[in-house]
């Protein structure tokens, strides 16, 4: 077997292992760690496909920023493995989640089946990509050319999410803050 194939099999196996272990964990910190493992292996897959930029950004944005914040919150709440996760969900929502996941598995199976056992390429997969497909230059040209408006609109969406988070996190009115401040000073003087 050639080296590319070996690297693909190892990183694909690690990706799936990490993803499965992530949803099997009861300990939130272990779940986050398996998620990181899965993402790093996934980045290797992107790099193998020649999408170096996407691979690097996956690590920078997901592993480097978002999951650090996850861990941060878990640490602040001090969640441990034996945490009570509440009652199991209602039968209706359980049924829904089974139906949806079976549907997704069937869809993937169909796509795999049509690629592996026939010569046709399923729609949505780009055939005959150019040599520097996925390079930083190509991604930049698409982002700041053809997809400029969707790209900029996404940033507005993120900005509004940040503003929303600040509004929710802020205290309702000044009286409340003052009364709380008084309460805390009372505690100190006691």
């Amino acid at each position: 077997m050639n080296l590319d194939g070996l690297i693909f099999i190892i990183s694909a196996a690690v990706t799936i292992f990490g993803a499965v272990m992530m949803i099997m964990q009861r300990n939130p910190v272990a779940a986050v760690l398996y998620f990181i493992l899965s993402l790093v292996a996934q980045a290797v897959l992107y790099v193998q496909l020649g999408a170096l930029f996407v691979g690097a950004v996956l690590i920078i944005v997901y592993s480097g920023a978002i999951l650090v914040l996850f861990l941060f919150v878990i640490m602040l709440l001090n969640l441990r493995g034996d945490e009570d996760l509440g009652a199991p969900s209602a039968p209706v929502s359980q049924l829904t989640k089974f139906i949806v996941s079976i549907g997704i598995v069937a869809e993937f199976a169909f796509i795999m089946w049509s690629t592996v056992f026939s010569n046709s390429i399923p729609t949505g997969i780009i055939a005959g990509a150019s040599d520097n497909f996925g390079s930083t230059e190509q991604v930049a040209k698409l982002l700041f050319g053809r997809y400029l408006y969707p790209f900029e609109l996404t940033s507005i969406l993120l900005l509004s999410a940040i503003v929303g988070a600040v509004v929710i996190a802020r205290k309702e009115d000044k009286d409340e803050i003052e009364s709380e401040a008084e309460a805390s000073t009372d505690k100190v003087t006691d």
Partner: peptide, 10 residues
């Protein structure tokens, strides 16, 4: 350069 970002962020 992106590799350096990625690794330092870990």
């Amino acid at each position: 350069v992106l590799f350096i970002f990625a690794v330092t962020s870990l």
